[in-house]
């Protein structure tokens, strides 16, 4: 998640927005996360993307997003 900010990887509890992220960057990261770690099934992948978009603004840490991804 640091990459998109041109930073080293974020620590599990680093907040993406606190580290300089914005909504546009967030969208980019989430799409990437779904491609890289999401399910193959496209309907499920879309559900995951939706959940991640919601979760990102609640808690934008790698740790929190990993919990969401872990459910898929």
């Amino acid at each position: 998640m640091g990459y998109v900010l041109a930073l080293p990887p974020l620590a599990p509890t680093d907040d993406f927005f606190g580290a300089g992220g914005d909504s546009g960057r967030a969208m980019q990261i989430l799409s990437e996360l779904v491609v890289r770690y999401g399910p193959d099934d496209s309907a499920l992948a879309e559900r995951l993307h939706e959940e991640l978009v919601l979760a990102m603004f609640d808690d934008g840490t790698p740790e929190a997003l990993a919990v969401v991804i872990g459910r898929y």
Binding site: R47, E50, L54
Partner: peptide, 12 residues
């Protein structure tokens, strides 16, 4: 436009 993109992405 970005707001609408986010809304569309987050809600079926």
């Amino acid at each position: 436009p970005l707001g609408y993109e986010l809304i569309a992405s987050a809600s079926s």
